[in-house]
Design a protein around this nucleic acid. Sequence first.
DNA 1: GTATTGAATATTGGATCCAATTCTGAGAGC
DNA 2: GCTCTCAGAATTGGATCCAATATTCAATAC
Lengths: 222, 222
Amino acid sequence: MQIRAQDLAQLASPADVIFDALREGITDGTLAEGEVLRQDNIARMFNVSRIPVREALTRLEEQGLVTTQRYRGAVVASLSLDEIEEIFEFRSLIEPEVVRHSVVVASQESLDLARDYADRFGHEEDPKNWGHLNRQLHYMLYRDCGRPYFLQVVDSALNRIERYQRLQLTLTSGMDRARREHQAIVEACIARDADQAAELTRAHILGAGRSLLDFLERVRKG
Amino acid sequence: MQIRAQDLAQLASPADVIFDALREGITDGTLAEGEVLRQDNIARMFNVSRIPVREALTRLEEQGLVTTQRYRGAVVASLSLDEIEEIFEFRSLIEPEVVRHSVVVASQESLDLARDYADRFGHEEDPKNWGHLNRQLHYMLYRDCGRPYFLQVVDSALNRIERYQRLQLTLTSGMDRARREHQAIVEACIARDADQAAELTRAHILGAGRSLLDFLERVRKG
DNA sequence: GTATTGAATATTGGATCCAATTCTGAGAGC
DNA sequence: GCTCTCAGAATTGGATCCAATATTCAATAC
């Protein structure tokens, strides 16, 4: 029997590559909200026809990262303050439970990595990386929870607000606070204190959401 | 200015129609789990080319209702017992909060309709309709919560397990119990008792999940 | 000068064709 | 009889072409 590479690792299709690239651009803010995504432009950028581009856009729309109108194309989705608030409320319900379940069974490796990320947090130079670092840190605290569906749903929610959340991290106050809270959460996890870790996670999310919304209200209103 | 129909109601594309039809078939159990969905067959059924079919399948995969492998086609997704359990756990976190927020502001119309559905529940003839009735009832209790994202996420979760949940409703004990619990939830909502409604909803979901899993374990194991 | 029309252009969506991969089954080898 | 091989069939994925719709902008009407 012949060894087929795709049996070991599903080969990435052009549509996958394009999907990942666009998602990255949307979550890290490279693509501005409301920006129109022209199938032709994207296709040329990746040296493919529009077919895989369409597939990528379809998937992005299903994920809520772009909105499309028939015959009018896709634009990078933008969230109202209410929608952002709702997603933080959602996270504040789910992520504490994820942490609670993780803490009990978390591997030493996950905890070590979480501590590393928490230490590096705030000492990173490039603000471009803060969003990534934040995501990786949270992922380390979540990944052992044994609930793939929860992780997937949280991931999807994070994708929607990451572009906004990084705005808040840019504020030094937001960054300081996030670093302190991350440290505390990691401590609780290392101490295997599930209730404490869950409650700190809840407070962290609600606090970050509140401060982000305050900031956005100032920016958008006056 | 000319009146354009699509300004008033976004015209349904072939891909929308196919997506809805397949989703319906998957959630109501018409399409068996693991069944292969051939692009050509579906295209012929709807008298279109495979292009809109591909779009529908892409969206269904993003929703978790089908799984696809490159060059090997799409099959109706099937859930392990663990995955089903996880979705019930997820619902038990989200839906009580949705009800809690709805109860405070629910319109009289929503409450009346909820009561109607609860009364009809169990007196419907055709088991095919039970799933629909269940969904409609819950939707009436949820729709005024002012949280579109929550509703969307709950809807997605319900789509994944509806095909299994209807199995449980088929058991007379499951049906009786669901009817009683629905009545109680509706009563609490009409009384505007948010805490009570939320707690009853939580218990209802966990109970239904437990009884469904017991049933499935008996069926699947021995 | 401003609003309106309509033709030209641009863009998306669907059909068809072609390429890449998987599946199937008949036949060879043992 | 059983397994392996490989050629043909079936299927999916991508490219290209065409149709449907939206957008733009110059020309016209007022």
